[in-house]
Amino acid sequence: MENRTGSAGRRKQAWGNAVATKPKVLITRRWPEAVEAKLKETYDVTLNESDVPMTVDEIRQALNDYDAVCPTVSDKVDAAALAVEAPRAKILASYGVGYSHIDTEAAKKAGLVVTNTPEVLSGCTADLAITLMLMAARRAGEGEREVRAGKWTGWRPTHMIGTKVSGGVFGVLGFGRIGREAAKRAHFGFGMKVIYFDAYPVKPELAAETGAEARDSIEAVLAEADVVSLHMPGGKENYHLISTERLKLMKPTAILVNTARGEVVDGVALAAALEAGTIAGAGLDVFEGEPKIVPELLATEKAVLLPHLGSATLATREAMGWRVMDNLEAFFKGETPKDRVA
């Protein structure tokens, strides 16, 4: 951790001469410049100038040194990190919609409020899911590598034949905000029939937007869909939900897309299924244990691999920061933050 940057620790209140101390806030990774500037105006802020993930020991120490800690999905805030007796911090205002990197039960035991940043990144993440679908179906990654390597010999009728997705069946596992946005793009943009499974009831009017049809199991979606797009939470309950057995249920022409959480997919099993021709292709933006990726996935040409770009537009990343600030403002006013998840 580098030296602290930020505003002065104290400010005079407008209604008198009393001096109020600004809450001390730690930002664990670099955020968009505009958000960092506003944070510095509002709080006594420490930035992680090195922009590398913090260790468990560093997070544990931060809980004793700051009033608020703002982690990201790359920070492992597990039970060990939260094993702090009477921490100074009372809120983990996470930057991201997913929060499986935080042990929420341990956070509650430590007296910490946990918030996330939903809604603001749904559209961009859905855009990327469709990008991955098209890249995997049309073998775009392979094609670019061939051109850049100087191996392309020119157009020919049998060269790099891909899969047509227009008019096919788009299967969504996890029909929440992002899943529904991806469904809209597939249905209205590519004329795809939408089917879905969600562990929780979906309001009929939300499914009606795309004419989406519910299926009664994950297996039913896998068997019917030409493209399966994953949008469920991570964590223990969905660990390796996409396994060898479930991959065998998919069509040999099918495409798997994951913009949810890396641990939802067994990467070794997926690589084996791709190489065996069990399914045709995969587009992945998230990985178990990222930034490390299992060698088997790196080795297969049938997988498109992106470095967790789902929300990576300036407008969205700024909106995520403003959402964190909204949660912090509510918390320090003694109110319940809008995006509290624990």
Rank of each mutant, 00 (worst) to 15 (best):
R185A: 03
K333T: 09
V202R: 04
A126L: 05
N327H: 09
P118A: 09
V294D: 15
T158M: 13
G281I: 10
A136G: 15
V257Q: 11
T300I: 07
C124V: 11
N3Q: 14
F190G: 01
V324G: 07
T125V: 15
T117D: 11
K333M: 12
E318W: 01
G168L: 04
V169E: 13
Y99W: 09
A330V: 09
G321Y: 09
T5N: 10
V97Q: 04
A137I: 09
A273F: 02
T163N: 15
T125F: 06
T259P: 04
G321E: 12
E263M: 09
V165E: 05
E205P: 01
R139E: 01
K12E: 13
E290I: 01
S243M: 05
A214F: 00
I242E: 10
K251G: 01
A14Y: 02
V264A: 08
A182R: 11
F188T: 07
V120Y: 11
V35S: 12
L206E: 15
G9F: 00
L297M: 09
S166H: 11
T72H: 08
R139L: 01
W31D: 01
M325P: 10
A62H: 03
L112T: 12
T42Y: 03
V165I: 15
E263Y: 01
I130S: 05
M135Q: 13
E329M: 11
S74E: 12
E296H: 07
A83H: 11
A62I: 00
F170H: 14
